[in-house]
Nucleic acid binder design. Structure first.
Lengths: 337, 337
DNA sequence: CTGAAAGCGCTTACAG
DNA sequence: CTGAAAGCGCTTACAG
């Protein structure tokens, strides 16, 4: 393997000139820069990662702590992991993956051995031991999601509150007054990520603010439970004319199956908006209006904040990513009674 | 941050003694070892990762290349990524995650900058550009899955052939003669991982060897397609009495729903075995007999092979992980005509 | 059983 | 615009 000395010799310059020519950290004569670049390419020179870490101030590695809980929805989780890795690469950073059993021990290890320049915390839960840890370690950190107490932290997340209001307002504008929200399994609200709670609470408060009745139900993910939950949500005289769904893909598919079975047409009899979804709602039949959760949007913002602050920790802040409405034809004016 | 010099001073020894005491690479007096260990703990000493990489011969990092194709089944994929990380940690290795757009460029980068000691290739496809690359780079590599041409490679995978025969033989022993296999979507067979093909081909050849008719069908994953595929598989006079499923979780759930709708009882009217599944088939109703694909088993073997060979590439070989039958009550003797 | 020292391959003040 | 040199914090022959 070629070293910086080999490149220096080939280009006829000193190793410091090679270093500066390649990093651009001081001005170099064009002809020199070219010779160095040519020599580096023809020798297939790649700087030694360990030497850089030792001599320099950066490792170009971030740790990503992404615990898989038993109720984690794998496709969304994967999408976020990938989006973080992709965003990091744009800034020349690699991702070191820390798994659950390593959630704390691993964080200490990689931070204090200076293997990583920063930490990205994924899928933060309401009370998350990783938070106190990174604060103690003093390692620059950005959190994707918002814990109960975000004090002192840099957090990034979709503005689920705004997304929920956007859905409700859009339906209200079309004359809908009776809306329902179908959410995740109970367990998710009891001790999980906090965004389902934010959607639920915003749904209840914002419908109330508008003087509208708001029905909410959780649902387990199996098809029987979904059908039962939906039946309960639609029971009684004052049947909702609009449904907001914040739940996983298979549940939303089952809802559409069940509405079809019950001869409830979308959007003629029932308008539907899918909120905070990471999957493609145009593949459903019918395609659903959606206010998506876009992993790349959130993760790009998170990585940008982290990179910008290095080598210091980022300033504490909660950055909300603005929601975006995508109409796909599943919302219509409220049907005449 | 404490360095090795701080530990040496605190323990009243030289830095080489600290290094050896901590690594155990040469014999050290018990009392010295204890003093060094105490000093290291009380100072919170963690060796500098970059310094180790530069001075030593190992980085204690493996690259994991785990591309997410659009037909990747995320839960299984996640399970494998996690199993690799967990297995690596047992040998004091961390995992650097390489995503798809980095599948080749990233591999070259981390290998030639000597960031990683080895590479683990996940979800290898039939023809995979990553294979030629790692062979060229000369970086120690182990492949999870088996490409078309495994020559020169160390590969690890569940013995899907044996698993399929095990399923067929188990059914044949109970008197079943008409068996069907429900597989993945077509696309998977056309250009994907090779194990679905191995299951399909073994199913067809082994039933033929036994002189039994074997029906095979692919299926898309949406509920309508699954029901149609199943109906086709069960059509005609000679209805199969046993079904082997090698497809994703939601498809298997739909199959059970559909059999229930058609009043076909499991196992009384129809015996079922789930093959190569990564999910929990005891959660279905009824619970299904399964020959599971256990990510930990495969990944442990892969990491063991890689670690054992370092710093050299492992010897070329294809290591098959033996299948294991788990009875859960979904197989019964063939019903009387 | 232990120590003094070379050296891994870079980055970055310090000098000119 | 460029170079000589110190130094990052380890590991590991070399010596005793």
């Amino acid at each position: 393997m070629a070293t910086i000395h080999d490149v220096a010799r080939a280009a006829g310059v000193s190793i410091s000139t090679v270093s500066y020519a390649l990093s651009g950290k001081r001005s170099i004569a064009d002809s020199t820069r070219r010779r160095v670049a040519d020599a580096a390419v023809s020798l297939g020179y790649q700087p030694h990662a360990g030497a850089r870490m030792l001599a320099g101030t950066r490792t170009q590695i971030f740790a990503l702590t992404a615990p898989l809980r038993h109720d984690t929805y794998a496709p969304a989780h994967m999408a976020f992991v990938l989006a973080v890795a992709t965003a990091a690469r744009r800034h020349d950073y690699d991702i070191l993956l820390l798994t659950e059993d390593e959630a704390t021990k691993g964080l200490s290890r990689v931070a204090s051995s200076r293997l990583v320049d920063g930490v990205i915390v994924l899928d933060v839960s309401v009370r998350d031991e990783r938070i106190a840890l990174v604060q103690n370690l003093g390692v620059p950190t950005v959190v994707i999601g918002i814990p109960d107490d975000p004090a002192g932290l840099a957090c990034v997340d979709l503005d689920f509150e705004a997304a929920t209001r956007l859905a409700i307002d859009g339906l209200a504008d079309r004359g809908h007054r009776r809306m329902a929200l179908l959410g995740h399994p109970d367990e998710i609200y009891e001790r999980g990520s906090n965004f389902p709670i934010r959607v639920r609470d915003t749904f209840l408060s914002h419908t109330a603010d508008l003087g509208l009745p708001g029905r909410f139900s959780t649902s387990e993910t199996d098809s029987g439970a979904v059908r039962a939950a939906l039946d309960a949500l639609l029971a009684g005289d004052e049947r909702p004319t609009a449904l907001i769904m914040h739940c996983q893909e298979s549940v939303q598919a089952t809802v559409l199956d069940h509405l079809r079975d019950r001869k409830i047409s979308v959007p003629e009899d029932m308008s539907i908006i899918s909120v905070g979804s990471t999957f493609d709602t145009t593949k459903f039949s019918p395609a659903l209006d959606v206010i998506p959760l876009i992993p790349a949007a959130t993760c790009d913002a998170a990585v940008d904040i982290l990179v910008a602050s290095l080598p210091d920790p980022p300033d504490p802040r909660v950055q909300y990513v603005a929601p975006e409405y995508r109409a796909n034809g599943s919302v219509a004016p409220v049907p005449a009674p």
